[in-house]
Design a protein around this nucleic acid. Structure first.
Lengths: 275, 275
DNA sequence: CTAATAGTGTCTATTAGACAGTATGTT
DNA sequence: AACATACTGTCTAATAGACACTATTAG
């Protein structure tokens, strides 16, 4: 039954690629940015929130639900190139920080057919987007993330609509550390994208303290107060000023420019110190 | 051209899944364990090394090269279930620590056709394997890992054969932290599996300090000296005894059993403290 | 002047690193 | 006795947490 080959070339010429059942693959991109929520008080600085880009589906399956931007990967396209192509189509930006989050491949995750999807996380400063969004796309602010006894509730809002979903973090047997996320409440988000959102937010929270990824979400010039707010919104907790400044001291360079106009002492602008 | 549907059900009944080009998917598993290298001196404790399970390919492509255990995923099989099935076939063990590492999807990574592969890492105590290995499978010790100016050289040995390969860690543009691994020297390992090996070793090194994953590689009872050696071999550096014992103090429980027979003071046996 | 943020000095508490010392088995 | 590892005490260095204080703007 098994044929003998004498070289790799000979084998490949004879290879029948149809012998295994095939499937489709997509990429989904969790695009994260930070928003400024304007405050009424002229003295107060703007409140920052995490922002997530969602797209309203206008066709089945999950018609009228929100999902992450994504798309099928081309048969001649490298997997890691696909998310950039999709983002270019969706937001018209290039050269974005992207990292692979996880590949989701449950058999029933898509009602149409077997589709495996690699989720990626993109970090951008949404103020750098020069063009306006696609009409079905919208930025949702993360209004709250609350966790108690392994139940995480996340509330999103885009100004018009509020989305709430809940995920249970289950400790896998024999694992000692990694959680499995199970959706327990969700009626507005398509596919398994709630899981992707939580995975990404947690990944970012874990990485922010030992990497420089935050700077992908910052403008070229920023105040340390703004940078601290971004850390705080990612970590979902307040930080102490002196400790924060000690930690980021060697990651930023002070410029001689000032940010004024805030009803209080002006702040020096800093930039990221590339290594 | 676009047909209108009134319900999800109606849409799905009419769905033609052949409209997108499909591909095949595999899983590859980096099985990591620790070996005991016996020492000649009766007093000295055994030297520990990282061990990697490799399989010799007996067919094209990459005939006669070594690769990670792996296999195609079934069309009706959850992606996360595939590595366990493959491991069961390869080592006849069940209930193993597994985590997804990364999904590799370059168009040319397999010379046969377009195959996307999800790499997983498995951590086991290889002494718990009751049955012997498949004849093509073999444990390779990690003899050395050396890194200088972003070039990593890894040397493996299974007692008969030595494998050496080198990988360059390239800082991706716009990334600020994540490396892209590029193979620069390798003539014995198939596919892109050298990249998977390095990714896994680095992932384990990063996780060992803030998780409890090591205990998946330990027997039920172990001495603190043995545990420390495993940490040291994963981190590839010596640790100081008092510091190490402080750190793991609340992760282990002392038993009243002793390990004797070692030409020196006996050591208490400990077990993992599950939380 | 006031409210609000910017920015720094310093004390304390906690943690990590280093080294030296004692303990106890086997041959 | 000698060697090799087991285990602990303690000093020091480095880091993180906390708080208080001064600085400076728009209105």
């Amino acid at each position: 039954m098994e044929k003998e080959y004498n070289s790799e070339e000979e084998f490949l010429n004879d290879y029948d690629s149809s012998q295994f059942e095939k499937l489709s693959m997509t990429v989904d991109i969790l695009v994260l940015s930070v928003s400024n929520e304007e405050t009424s008080n002229y003295r107060k600085t703007d409140k920052k929130k995490m922002s997530i880009l969602l797209v309203k589906r206008n066709q089945y399956p999950f018609k009228d639900k929100w999902c992450l931007p994504g798309g099928f990967i081309g048969i001649d396209e490298n997997l890691d190139d696909a998310p950039m192509r999709v983002l270019k189509r969706e937001t018209n930006v290039d050269n974005i920080y992207l990292e692979q989050l996880y590949t989701f491949g449950d058999t029933k995750r898509d009602p149409r057919m077997r589709i495996v999807s690699s989720a990626y996380m993109a970090l951008i400063d949404k103020n750098k987007l020069d063009t306006s969004l696609n009409t079905n796309a919208s930025w949702f602010d993360v209004v709250s993330i609350e966790e108690k006894n392994n139940l995480v509730n996340i509330i999103l809002n885009n100004g018009k609509e509020t989305i709430s979903f809940t995920i249970r973090k289950e400790l896998k047997e024999k694992t000692t550390d990694r959680y499995k996320f199970v959706e327990v409440e969700n009626d507005k988000i398509a596919f398994d994208h709630t899981i992707v959102i939580l995975s990404g937010l947690e990944r970012l929270r874990n990485k922010v303290e030992y990497t420089d990824v935050v700077f992908n979400m910052m403008p070229d010039l920023f105040t340390l107060g703004e940078l601290q707010q971004v850390y705080e919104v990612i970590l979902n907790k307040k930080l102490l000023d002196p400790a924060f400044r000690r930690i980021i001291a060697d990651k930023v360079v002070k410029t001689n420019k000032l940010k004024t106009g805030g009803g209080h002492r002006p702040s020096y602008l800093f930039e990221y110190k590339h290594k």
